[in-house]
């Protein structure tokens, strides 16, 4: 991924064919040396029918605009969309989104303009970057024949770097051969939050998960970085 997102956006704004994407890029992106405290951010959480962007679909999108100081929960938005993948029973149980909800929901392309306008100019904040960006990229490829790019800050990755020491080759060998285990601290959202004395939130509500992730980023920066940390050190 390019670290100079400002230039990358300029380039993409020129080459994008879809007008909604063009506008998204034209909103621009801050320079990599911008202090994190001054960068517009947006916390995002997708609920999906599975883990694989190639075969599963997006069920819901929750977004909360934020900065390092304030999470603007009052401005939060949430969309339920119809996945292109037939809804599996298990995901229904987890997300509390029923077939009825889905049947009434519109296709993501109906909301695309609104969603992209809302997120434009902001760096995404997610817990595990393997979901939101790949799912949106795959979905857009399938629907409008064009992918999308934007910078993402991954609170799980930050936590992994802070908490997990890489194993030596010898340790990896011992662990792989089941001779010895090197347990690592959990970097799941709930467990990570506990370390910062953030309150317990029940999982699997899209908006609550988004808020949980946004708060975690604020706590991580407060404890381990500084408001002056360049955003380029944190994004992917």
């Amino acid at each position: 991924m390019p670290l100079n997102w400002t230039e990358r956006y300029q380039h993409l704004a020129a080459s994008a064919r879809d007008s909604r994407l063009r506008e998204f890029y034209q909103a621009g992106m801050v320079a990599a040396n911008t202090p994190i405290a001054e960068a517009p951010l947006i916390a995002v959480d997708f609920e999906t029918t599975g883990m694989d962007a190639q075969t599963h679909g997006i069920l819901s999108i929750a977004m909360i605009p934020m900065t390092l100081q304030r999470i603007e929960l009052h401005a939060a938005k949430q969309w339920i969309v119809r996945p292109h993948d037939p809804l599996t029973e298990s995901s229904v149980v987890i997300h509390g989104i029923t077939h009825g909800d889905i049947a009434q929901a519109a296709d993501i392309t109906d909301y695309l303009e609104e969603i992209l306008k809302f997120a434009a100019g902001r760096t995404w904040v997610v817990h595990y970057r393997g979901i939101e960006r790949p799912f949106l990229q795959q979905t857009l490829l399938n629907r409008i024949g064009e992918s999308i790019e934007f910078p993402v800050i991954d609170t799980m990755q930050i936590e992994a770097q802070l908490r997990r020491k890489p194993l030596t080759a010898w340790q990896r060998l011992l662990q792989r051969t089941n001779l010895k285990q090197y347990p690592q601290p959990s970097i799941r959202l709930g467990d990570s939050r506990q370390r910062y004395r953030l309150p317990y939130y029940p999982p699997h509500d899209a908006l609550t998960d988004t808020l949980a992730c946004a708060e975690l980023l604020q706590a991580q920066i407060a404890h381990h970085y500084s408001p002056d940390t360049p955003i380029g050190q944190l994004w992917y």
Partner: peptide, 10 residues
């Protein structure tokens, strides 16, 4: 509840 914003302080 829908007017709230949130912030973390060490």
């Amino acid at each position: 509840a829908t007017s709230i914003s949130v912030g973390y302080v060490r």
